[in-house]
Amino acid sequence: MCAVRGLVKTYPAQRSRRRAPVAAPVRASDGVTLSVRRGELFGLLGPNGAGKSTLVRQLTGLLRPDAGEITVLGHDLVRHPERAARLLAYLGQESTALDELTVWLATETTARLRGLPLADARRATGAVLEELDLTALAARPLKRLSGGQRRLACVATALVGERPLLVLDEPTTGMDPVARRAVWAAVGRRRGERGTSVVLVTHNVMEAESVLDRVAVLDRGRVIACDTPGGLKALVGDDVRLELVWRDEPPLHLPEVAALSPAARRTGRRWSLRLPPDAARAAVTAVTGGAAFAALDDFSLATPSLEDVYLALGGRTEGLVKA
């Protein structure tokens, strides 16, 4: 229902006032090809600067691609970008257009501007605020709310007024778990009842694993993998991840610790190792059984996450959120 083919977008080089180039041109979309099925919750995962937002801005008609095709529900959005507003609802990262409105008025106005007559807009606003548990905050201006509540109000404006495709750019940023659950329940209801498709931008690997049907992993403007979270994890095989946190300096004089040292990725006092299950079990026994245990603060063993997939595919891991 939504297909993107060979999409290319290059931001021109930035020049300073004296015409000296200060930044090279950036190819933010580098031949992106993907497709989203009806009713699917499709994710774009990658760190900041991977080209996720650039991709959805082209999808929503806000940015013109240099080359490539975008087709949503049979409409060519490269040739007719103005049709995007009549096919999809977009939740951007900024709420400045709504900040001074109350939650109710922001939602009702958006509903009106999405084409609902006044009575319908009011009914839809009441329903969506109820659904997201925002009724108590309806009379508060957005800028007086906490970051998570404000984001939730913005989600309400994206959900009000039916659209067959929702494009959500990091919708749950700053939200507590209750608000997150409310968002995913509301999105799930629309998929179940109306077959709504969702394109979700995220850099949160845990969220990506738990809610998405399929994920496209982006790195430097390219799709480096695209599959279900399970399918992607199968790419890294059975390897498990062993995390060791030392109290102080790791006791490298101990042979069992020295043996693990070359394979460990270090972040401060934390060691992170990707090992086959047998080796991981043996390593846990070795470090928890002997003298090394005294130097150990904490340890954990986990099945592979999308972060491991991302690393295995050669992506840069900084910028991915794990909570």
Binding site: G61, E82, A85, L113, R114
Partner: peptide, 16 residues
């Protein structure tokens, strides 16, 4: 301010 902060996106993605 609206233009600089990307706030115009909100209106630009509505069919008005």
């Amino acid at each position: 301010a609206l233009r600089a902060s990307g706030g115009l996106d909100h209106y630009a993605t509505l069919p008005v």
